[in-house]
Amino acid sequence: MASPLASVRAQDAVLEFLNTVVPRNGQLLDLFQSDEDVLAWLERTGLLEMVVMREDGIYRGLATEARQLRENVRQLVLQRKLGQLVDTGLLNWVLGAGSYQMELVEDEAGNLNALYRFPAQTPTQVLVPVAIAAAELLVRGDFLLVRQCESPDCPLWFYDRTKSHRRRWCNMTICGNRQKAARFRTRLLCGGLVEQE
């Protein structure tokens, strides 16, 4: 049976999950400051619509669980990227907490779709769709194309889907231009020193 999250979008969502620690003013800022921050992120990525929430919708400790999962996934991605053995226990603790229900639905055009729903009574269970997407990335992702930004001050990851597969920066207008400007300044400085001799 196909995984409920075996899609390009879900694989990219895993890297977006890692990218919830962002560089700001020379420091790293964690975007998961509260449980609500995590729920808002899950909603933006479309993963929350798969979660069957408790009636009260309150999951105390979700931010702590999400930060732990994020760092575990970061470690797994690094292990996979470096060709090392992957410590499956880092992800299996979340995968083992979940279960799913499948619902067959027909859309307006008459197409049948299988919708997966993940009942969530605990904060860990809310994160099961993220863990499944991470497992799919680790199993099926092309780790020649999963890259970390080459800027030394940037922790962000991306999946290089460019035609040439030569992307080097998380964002060309930010990190790419910054690196190009630094190289240009170095060339000017070195050129200036050479001319003075």
Rank of each mutant, 00 (worst) to 15 (best):
S164D: 11
R178N: 11
K180N: 08
L145Y: 12
E197F: 14
T162C: 03
R74D: 13
L91G: 00
V130A: 14
L91K: 14
F118T: 02
Q148H: 02
K163L: 13
L69G: 15
P119L: 04
A6S: 09
K163N: 08
F158M: 11
R67F: 00
P123R: 07
E49N: 13
Q84R: 11
S7V: 04
E71R: 11
P119W: 11
A13R: 10
D142A: 04
A133Y: 02
V52F: 14
E43A: 08
E108T: 05
Q84I: 00
E106R: 13
D87P: 00
G191A: 08
Y116Q: 05
Q33L: 07
L28P: 00
E150T: 15
D12S: 09
D30V: 03
E49Y: 15
Y116F: 10
L76C: 13
L85D: 12
L127C: 05
T20Y: 02
S7Q: 03
E197N: 13
N113Q: 14
C170T: 02
F143D: 01
F17L: 05
G83S: 04
F143V: 02
F143Q: 01
L31Q: 15
V86L: 01
D107T: 06
M102V: 14
D12G: 12
T162M: 02
H165M: 00
A114M: 12
R9H: 08
R168G: 04
L112E: 06
W157P: 06
N177G: 06
D142S: 09
L138S: 07
A181T: 13
C175R: 05
L112H: 09
S99R: 15
C175H: 00
P4M: 14
L76E: 03
V52S: 03
S164G: 07
R9Q: 13
R140N: 08
F32Y: 09
L5A: 01
V8G: 03
L39T: 10
C154E: 07
T173M: 11
N171K: 15
C175V: 03
K163I: 06
G96M: 00
L145M: 12
R54M: 04
A2V: 09
L156Y: 01
R24I: 08
K180I: 04
D107Y: 06
R140I: 01
L95S: 06
R9A: 15
L127F: 00
N113M: 14
G26C: 02
Q148F: 00
Q68I: 03
E43M: 01
V73N: 11
L104E: 10
D160Y: 09
T186C: 05
C149E: 03
C170R: 03
L48K: 07
M53K: 09
E136T: 08
A66K: 04
V52L: 12
N111Y: 12
Q27N: 09
H165P: 06
A134C: 03
A63M: 01
R67N: 07
N92M: 10
A114S: 04
V22Y: 14
R44M: 05
